[in-house]
């Protein structure tokens, strides 16, 4: 049962994933992931720990081969052309850092050798904006400075697409703000398609233009950020409503069971069938509530699926 919600995505996408599966032994990390990131968007991919965010990113970059499904990034198949994809994408890994003995100047020189479109002036400019001293070694930097250096490294070859795996992980609030703000500014200045994963809604809300919720290997919700921030109306129905609930479940975008109650998110177009089914219910059985993004995420990731 597909229960994802797509709200107003463009069709011209730099990242397209369809039906992707990936498991590690008995652990099913991705279970039919469908994801699209439109060109120029900053897509915030949120999910709990273990939701499959990192696996999805590694698969879309060709770093881990999926067991099923297809993926296209900038029109390339990363499974077959991993090196080409990595050359055109700015990748910000979550955990992986350069050699700690390496000076940043050396790191950037490596980048110059690795990326044919490396722009030393842009690199210098970014270092200046981040107040990064290239003479310092990686091990001499704070976590925040390392993250900034990784961002400079990922941006300096003028990528058309950025993939950032939890860039704010482990950063203090100040560093987190600076980094996110820089990501937003750079993405907007350079009109770079950006996919940003995080399990921190605050990070996403601040800069993302689109948002998607990954839960148990599936994208269960995606929308434009401004739409999501306006809030979604949650229809909460007493379970005693009986057969009338069937009509709601069939037409709702999300149907969840929460104890003895049934909860629905209306379809994106407030569909006629849904309204008709809702009208058949007695008012006493129905309650309506406006959800914040946080509540929406909580609703999507904690309630049980309706059979």
């Amino acid at each position: 049962m597909s229960e994802s919600v797509s709200v107003g995505l463009d069709t011209s996408c730099d990242i397209t994933i369809e039906g992707m599966y990936r498991h590690f032994g008995r652990i099913k990390a991705l279970r039919g992931l469908d994801l699209q990131v439109r060109r120029g968007a900053i897509f915030g991919l949120i999910g709990n720990n273990g939701a499959g965010k990192t696996t999805a990113i590694h698969c879309m970059l060709g770093l881990i081969p999926p067991h099923d499904g297809s993926v296209r990034i900038l029109g390339l198949d990363p499974i077959k052309r991993r090196v080409d994809v990595l050359r055109q994408v700015g990748f910000f890994p979550e955990r992986d850092a350069p050699y700690e003995w390496m000076r940043l100047s050396t790191l950037f020189k490596v980048g110059e050798l690795a990326y044919k479109d490396w722009d030393p002036k842009l690199c210098d400019d970014l270092c200046g904006r981040f107040k990064i001293d290239p003479r310092k070694k990686v091990k001499e930097l704070s976590k925040g400075m390392v993250a900034k250096a990784k961002l400079v490294y990922a941006m300096s070859h003028r990528p058309a697409c950025m993939v950032m795996d939890e860039p704010t992980s482990g950063l203090d609030p100040g560093a987190r703000y600076e980094l996110l703000e820089m990501i937003r500014v750079l993405s907007e200045e350079r009109r770079v398609t950006t996919l940003l994963s995080s399990h921190n809604l605050g990070d996403i809300e601040g800069i993302a233009t689109d948002v998607g919720v990954l839960h148990e290997g599936q994208l269960i919700f995606d929308s434009k950020m401004d739409r999501a921030q306006k809030g979604f109306e949650l229809i909460d129905v007493n379970g005693e409503a009986g057969e009338a609930l069937d009509g709601l479940a069939a037409s709702a975008s999300v149907a969840r069971r929460n104890g003895d109650r049934a909860q629905y998110l209306p379809p994106k177009d407030d569909g006629e069938l849904f309204q008709q089914a809702l009208a058949k219910l007695p008012d006493s059985a129905v309650s309506r509530r406006q959800l914040s993004l946080f509540e929406l995420f909580h609703f999507l990731t904690t309630t049980d699926l309706m059979e």
Binding site: L61, V83, D84, L86, D96, A97, P98, A114
Partner: peptide, 16 residues
């Protein structure tokens, strides 16, 4: 070093 400190992952993410 690459294995004990995880640098293989860093190298693997490079376009080479």
């Amino acid at each position: 070093e690459e294995i004990s400190k995880g640098q293989l992952r860093y190298l693997y993410g490079m376009p080479m």
